[in-house]
Design a protein around this nucleic acid. Structure first.
Lengths: 239, 239
DNA sequence: ACGGAACTCTGTATGTCTTACAGTAATAAC
DNA sequence: GTTATTACTGTAAGACATACAGAGTTCCGT
């Protein structure tokens, strides 16, 4: 950590845990992993806003500045937390590829609900550490089984992940804020047929409930997406 | 702005521009709109990180604290900026509903590329001011023309918007950070067939280029989603 | 064995940030 | 014209990231 180093390279090295052996000074009494775990614990317990260098340092029992021995700054710490927080990727037990994709989706949703702070880390660099890649690999595996080729499966997996992630963010936005119900009902006051015709039409149609829960919202889109994959595969190869 | 007020109600009132007439003190020399516009200008020119109360105040030519006369805090200012920054919703000129959805998607992408800071505002409350709703209404209108019913069209529009937004975020993550190419090539070092089998398979298949551009990435997913809609509509009503 | 390089950890300090609070001036209601 | 209400200013408090210098620790080369 002494030499000036490309931030991207630094990010990679820390994410993938290269240590570099045979170092001269005193034995480190801490580790990057411990610090990252402490950060995750703070975020879990008190929210992302409570994660400060001082708070994390207090958590591990060292001074604030000693954190900088292990991690070059807060931003990278957050990246590392993100990758650590995903945990072990799920094992998909369902039979068909479709079912496995749905199973995967349910698992990420569960993760995002358990750790909503993951959805609110503002980053400037593309992270994709080992943890996130492992999850992504599981999804991609299921999607590849549909018969899509490599780039297609990649695109589709990214699309699916993106939608799921952002929907979870929107959902947890609402869950945390009080008065959300009031908010929505106030909103319907303002949705007039002249100003927002489509919205008005959709909201006054049969079977529209005010509270659109994430589960059903996400499911319909996902099903259509997978239907589209089926159609594409049937069209392209089988006939 | 004197009384204690529900933050959600405050949010709504400011987003929808209720002023409340007949006030007693001196005439306001500024307006919420001016302040928000200044914030947007700063974010456009110098990035979201440069947006501080002091910087915005300097932009409009008043003291930092005078901002708090109009806006209760920074977080709400960012919400207002988000809703203002979308601008006028696009007019969709294409014929078929599919083409109009694709046209809409291209327009949001353009918007997100032009103002990437919109994708990095961390919020705790659901915003959905008039600006965002207007955009959403246009999308929903096109989707409704497919034949989906209200809740279905709503779900699908949310799904589509979410995917598009998150893909844009990922893309602009990469675009801003230097050494991204190096990053990716380093990454492929670490993708071994034993650790990430699906990823390895997908990446070594034919026609895989290292740089997956957002355009094609997003397009494939979108097309499958719309195919799925076609299938669903044909299945449900027409026969 | 020993000098010094390299490293860990601490304490202090600086600059930036949000925002609370008190004060001053202006305006409209009564 | 008195008074409540509001706009705006100045100061300052408290949180925060992090630069820097120093003290102590360990290992390498000699």
């Amino acid at each position: 950590m002494s030499d000036a180093e490309d931030p991207a390279a630094q990010s990679l090295r820390l994410l993938w845990g290269d240590v570099g052996p045979g170092r001269r000074g005193p034995k480190p009494r801490l580790s990057v992993a411990e610090i990252v775990a402490a950060g995750v614990a703070v975020a879990d317990g008190e929210g992302l806003e409570a994660v400060s260098m001082q708070r994390v340092a207090a958590e591990v029992g060292y001074t604030t500045m000693s954190m900088y021995t292990y991690v070059p700054g807060k931003e990278l710490l957050l990246e590392l937390m993100l990758d650590a927080a995903v945990g072990e990727p799920p094992t998909l037990s369902a039979e068909g590829w479709r079912e496995r994709v749905e199973e995967w989706t349910a698992q990420v949703q569960e993760l995002f609900h358990r750790r909503p702070w993951m959805l609110r880390i503002a980053m400037r660099n593309p992270p994709m550490g080992p943890g996130q890649l492992a999850w992504f690999d599981r999804l991609l595996s299921a999607v590849l089984d549909s018969g899509l080729n490599g780039p297609e499966a990649m695109s589709l997996s990214m699309y699916l992940l993106s939608a799921t992630r952002e929907l979870a963010r929107i959902h947890t936005d609402g869950a945390a804020s009080p008065g959300i119900d009031e908010y929505i009902s106030n909103l319907s006051t303002v949705v007039t047929p002249v100003r927002f015709p489509a919205l008005y039409r959709a909201m006054s149609s049969d079977g529209f409930t005010d509270d659109v829960d994430e589960e059903s919202l996400s499911r319909f889109g996902l099903r259509r997406l997978l239907d589209g994959v089926d159609a594409h595969v049937a069209d392209g190869s089988g006939g």
